[in-house]
Design a protein around this nucleic acid. Structure first.
Length: 660
DNA sequence: GCAATGAGCGTC
DNA sequence: ACGCTCATTGCT
């Protein structure tokens, strides 16, 4: 006699059928299955709870979606094995959201749930639940008056009306304070708020600002790197309604706040907002979805503006919150550019030994003299070498599909080749200026930073980047050398942006947008009476946008360019990669909507031991209107593959950030 | 011609 | 890691 015999089990008296999502990694099984609830588990088997059950003979994990009276299933149903815990972790809102996100990205709901629901911690779950928080007072939101449409957004939040907006913060803006004011406003109306920022440093700053306005009891910090017990405790606190405000990194987009009133993504251009796990959802997209289904307000914010945010504005979905030009001029430091061609060769006598342009040298010297730190932004290593036009320095593009041209790796010299469609271009002609000459991008800024350090030998040099990131820097003379994203918060007298060439030359569709974003993030830390010097050609759009501090102008241009070239977000694009033969079969099977178009495939990755590059990648694009159909077609093709037990995995990513 | 055994497959 | 189907094997 072993275990429980089926004959001894009786279905529960009411709602005996459980609709269940099982945790199996097979695309064609991404749907609910019906099980019977034994009467012994009638009480425990609540909608949203975690389960163990037998599926195709195997013991697997699952989630109980809902209890229903009868099943459509014709065959014999299994009984649920056991209820792991009656904590209803899969809330109805989360179930609907996970399904929508999976469909949007041609992925599986169970994969989204893995991102959205942290692993269980039994001890934490057994702890007595925290008291529901008192209602905080309305915070002071008068600082939003610097932006013409700011007070209207605050007002909508206070009165529980839905509002969408795209906000560009002024240089020097205390953005954590502003966002905390919005979160506290939502909380004061007894609504939940989820604020998502790129990295842990930002989380810490924003958390502090929120606690200052809403109190410690009403705010939780959700991030993957806080440890499993702490993480699950914080998550449960939110789900149980014991805290209204969530501050976190990308996994917190799914935070199950009750009565959601506000969703915010800060610096939506940062690639940390794209999840690295299947189905690779992007924070901005998930929050748009949540705002749409929950009726909550959404704020897409940053110093710079992405083409995606610009599309939200231009499509009329979100009004913009931007300051008037006068206000921008007042808040902005003096920003000058210095390109290779217009670099002044006259050197300051004190810097003669070093090869630092005198404007940059003077800006640094003046700031240090006033007792302020100076920020020096240098590039990170490891950028993919790409090709640019010799004349106008714009990225070299394929004539056929407008993909980036690169030099194929290999021994013999081969012509520049498109990284997307694989077509070689033997007679390059720049689409922008008509030049026939190409240049390879080189990096030379690190040396400049070193020279700067020698030129100001009496001043301490602090480094921030890689493994050692400084949070803040004191208000005293210092050279702070930082890589993009690792700039310590400080009251800088000057910033020198030395990474222009490395950033602008990347073989990436988002290279210029990304460059401007990083420059603005650094320049925003400089005092309004300070100076910023960027070492890049003044003719480049990104440089002009920085000098004038006009992220909207740049985003408008960027979106127009992408529309013309057929890039996201103007179109919906998917990358599909896998072993060559499997990929070919997948593409063959794919039933694309009318606007569908396949680019490639092209080989990707390094050759293996035997020297063959088996892996290939294709890009598939459709109009935005056909986006859902594209995702559905990709999902259907995946279903076919897993149903046939085809061994080679095909990876599908929708709107991938890196289109190499 | 038919039972006994085993491999493969779907998956409630 | 179950229980079903279907093919193969071996014996009458």
């Amino acid at each position: 006699m072993t275990g429980v015999r089926k004959g001894e089990l009786r279905p529960a008296a009411t709602l005996p059928v459980a609709r269940v999502y099982v945790d199996v990694p097979l695309a064609h099984l991404d749907r609910p299955f019906d099980y019977l609830v034994p009467d012994t588990l009638d009480e425990a088997a609540v909608p949203g709870c975690r389960l163990r059950l037998r599926f195709a003979g195997k013991q697997v994990d699952g989630f109980l979606l809902e209890r229903v009276a009868a099943s459509e299933f014709g065959g014999r149903m299994e009984f649920i094995g056991k209820v792991v815990s009656s904590e209803p972790v899969l809330t109805p809102e989360l179930a609907a959201l996970a399904r929508a996100v999976a469909d949007r990205y041609a992925g599986m709901m169970i994969d989204v749930l893995r991102l959205a629901i942290p692993p269980r911690h039994a001890k934490v779950e057994a702890e007595p639940p925290a008291e529901p928080p008192g209602t905080p007072e309305q915070p002071d939101t008068t600082r939003w008056a610097r932006y013409p449409r700011g007070p209207a957004f605050v007002d909508a939040l206070r009165n529980k009306r839905q509002a969408h907006a795209v906000w560009q913060a002024l240089p020097g803006e205390d953005w954590p304070a502003r966002l905390a004011e919005l979160a506290a406003t939502a909380a004061a109306s007894d609504r939940g708020a989820v604020l998502v920022v790129p990295d842990y440093r930002d989380v810490a700053r924003l958390y502090e600002a929120c606690v200052a306005r809403a109190g410690e009891d009403d705010v939780v910090l959700l991030a993957a790197d806080v440890g499993p017990a702490k993480r699950y405790r914080a998550w449960l606190r939110v789900k149980r309604g014991a805290a209204r405000i969530v501050v976190g990194t990308r996994a917190s987009v799914f935070a199950p706040v009750q009565r959601p009133g506000l969703f915010v993504v800060w610096d939506d251009g940062d690639d940390l907002h794209a999840d690295l796990h299947a189905p690779y959802p992007h924070v901005r997209d998930v929050l748009i979805q949540r705002a749409h289904t929950s009726g909550a307000s959404l704020l897409v914010a940053g110093f710079a503006r992405t083409a995606e945010a610009q599309l939200l504005v231009e499509s009329g979905w979100a009004p913009e919150i931007v300051a008037a030009r006068d206000e921008v001029r007042q808040a902005s430091p003096r920003i000058t550019s210095l390109g290779e061609t217009d670099q002044q060769l006259a050197r300051d006598p004190a810097a003669r030994a070093a090869r630092i342009p005198s404007v940059a040298f003077e800006a640094a010297r003046d700031a240090l003299k006033k007792g302020r730190p100076v920020l020096v932004q240098v590039p990170r290593g490891g950028y993919v070498p790409a090709l640019a036009c010799q004349q106008c320095r714009g990225p070299a593009r394929c004539r056929r599909c407008a993909g980036p041209l690169g030099l194929p790796s290999g021994t013999e010299a081969r012509p520049p080749t498109c990284r997307w469609c694989g077509v070689p271009d033997t007679a390059f002609r720049c689409g922008n200026c008509g030049s026939r000459r190409l240049r390879a991008i080189v990096v030379g800024a690190k040396r400049t930073a070193e020279e700067l350090g020698r030129a100001f030998a009496e001043v301490p040099v602090l480094g921030s980047g890689g493994a050692e990131v400084l949070k803040t820097v004191d208000d005293r003379p210092a050279l702070v050398v930082a890589t993009p994203g690792a700039e310590p918060v400080g009251d800088y007298g000057a910033a020198l942006l030395l990474d222009g060439w490395a950033l602008l030359g990347r073989a990436d569709l988002r290279a210029t947008e990304e460059t401007l974003r990083r420059w603005m993030t650094a320049a925003a830390l400089v005092r309004a009476d300070g100076r910023v010097v960027v070492l890049a050609e003044s003719g480049l759009p990104a440089v002009q946008a920085l000098v004038r501090w006009d992220p909207v102008w740049h985003a408008r241009q960027e979106l127009a360019a992408r529309t013309e070239l057929g890039f996201p977000p103007a179109v919906r694009m998917a990358s599909v990669d896998g072993p060559a033969t499997a990929l070919a079969a997948f593409l063959d099977e794919l039933k694309l909507p009318a606007s569908g178009e396949i680019l490639g495939p092209v080989p990707i990755g390094e050759p293996d031991r035997d020297g063959n590059t088996e892996k290939e990648r294709a890009l598939v694009r459709t109009t935005r209107a056909d986006g859902r159909a594209l995702a559905a077609a990709l999902a259907t093709a995946q279903h076919g593959r897993t149903a046939r037990k085809e061994p080679d995995p095909i990876r599908v990513r929708l709107d991938p950030l890196e289109l190499i």
